[in-house]
C-alpha cells in the first residue's frame, strides 16, 4: 500500500518536469503536420503540427487538475452534508439524504447541457455541471458511515464521559470514516475524469485550442485513419488514468479499512 503515494508523487513530478523537455503544446509547426512519432516528437504531431506528447502533458494538468478540484470541492461539501444528515435524527437529515439520492439518479450530462446553455460552453460551465451532482455520492457514503459509526458503543461511552455531540462527530466519527471516504474519492476521481473529458469531447467543456484529453479526442477523430496516434494518445491517457484511480480506490477500500 505504501507504494501508491510514491507512484502518485512520481507521476505529479513527471507532469511538472516534462513541459520543460517538450515543445510548447500550443505552437503549430506547419512543416510537421500529423507527423508520426520521432525523436523530436516522441508521440508525433497533430493536425497543426503541435507536439502530441506536450499536449498530452498540458492536457493532463488541465484534465487532472479540474478533476481533482471537482473531487475536493464535492467531497468536502458532500461529506459535510452526510455527516450532518447522519448525526441529525429528525426529518431534516432524511430529507437531505433523499435529495442526495434523487440528484444522484440524474445524469451529469443533463447538468452539463443546462450549464452550457446558461453560462455558455467553457470551464466554468464544466465545473458547475460536475459539482452539481458530484457531491451526492459522498453525502450518501458519509451518511451511511456516520449512521453506522454513531451506533457503535464507544460513541455512547465518549458522550457519557461528557463530550459534546459536535465534538464526537468532528473528532471520533470523522477519524473513523475518513479511510473509506478517501477510497471513495479515488473512485469518484475516475468517474469525474470521464465526465470532464466526456463533456469536453462534446464541446460543452474545455474549448479548443486548449489541450484537454476529451477535446483532443474530439479534434483528432477526423484523423483516425490518417494519423491514429492523434486520437490514441489522449484516449489511452484517459483510460489508463481512470483505471489506475479505480484500482487504487478498490485497493484502499479493500485492504485499507
Amino acid at each position: 500500500m505504501r507504494r501508491w503515494p510514491v507512484a502518485c508523487a512520481a507521476a505529479a513530478g513527471v507532469l511538472v518536469v516534462l513541459p520543460f523537455l517538450l515543445p510548447h503544446p500550443d505552437v503549430p509547426d506547419f512543416a510537421a503536420i500529423l507527423a508520426p512519432p520521432s525523436a523530436a516528437h516522441p508521440l508525433g504531431t497533430d493536425q497543426l503540427g503541435r507536439d502530441v506528447a506536450a499536449r498530452m502533458v498540458a492536457g493532463a494538468r488541465l484534465t487532472l487538475g479540474l478533476s481533482v478540484a471537482a473531487v475536493l470541492l464535492t467531497g468536502l461539501f458532500g461529506v459535510a452534508v452526510g455527516l450532518l444528515a447522519g448525526a441529525s435524527k429528525g426529518p431534516f437529515g432524511a430529507v437531505l439524504v433523499r435529495t442526495a439520492d434523487l440528484l444522484a439518479a440524474l445524469p451529469t450530462v443533463l447538468f452539463g447541457l443546462l450549464a452550457a446553455v446558461v453560462l455558455g460552453p467553457g470551464v466554468p460551465a464544466l465545473l458547475v455541471a460536475v459539482c452539481a451532482v458530484g457531491w451526492t455520492p459522498f453525502a450518501r457514503q458519509a451518511h451511511l458511515l456516520t449512521v453506522r459509526e454513531t451506533g457503535r458503543e464507544y460513541v455512547e461511552g465518549v458522550v457519557a464521559l461528557g463530550a459534546t455531540r459536535a465534538r464526537v462527530l468532528a473528532v471520533h466519527v470523522s477519524r473513523n470514516i475518513a479511510p473509506p471516504l478517501v477510497a471513495h474519492a479515488c473512485l469518484r476521481f475516475a468517474s469525474t475524469l470521464l465526465t470532464v473529458s466526456g463533456l469536453s469531447f462534446l464541446g460543452l467543456g474545455v474549448q479548443p485550442p486548449t489541450a484537454e484529453w476529451g477535446a483532443m479526442v474530439a479534434e483528432g477523430r477526423e484523423y483516425l485513419f490518417a494519423a491514429p496516434h492523434v486520437v490514441l494518445v489522449p484516449s489511452v491517457a484517459v483510460v489508463l488514468t481512470a483505471a489506475a484511480a479505480t484500482v487504487l480506490g478498490r485497493r484502499l477500500s479493500g485492504g485499507g479499512g
Partner: peptide, 11 residues
C-alpha cells in the same frame, strides 16, 4: 470490469 468503468463512451 476495471476496463468497463474506465473506458469512456467517446473512446
Amino acid at each position: 470490469g476495471i476496463a468497463g468503468v474506465s473506458v469512456p463512451e467517446f473512446v
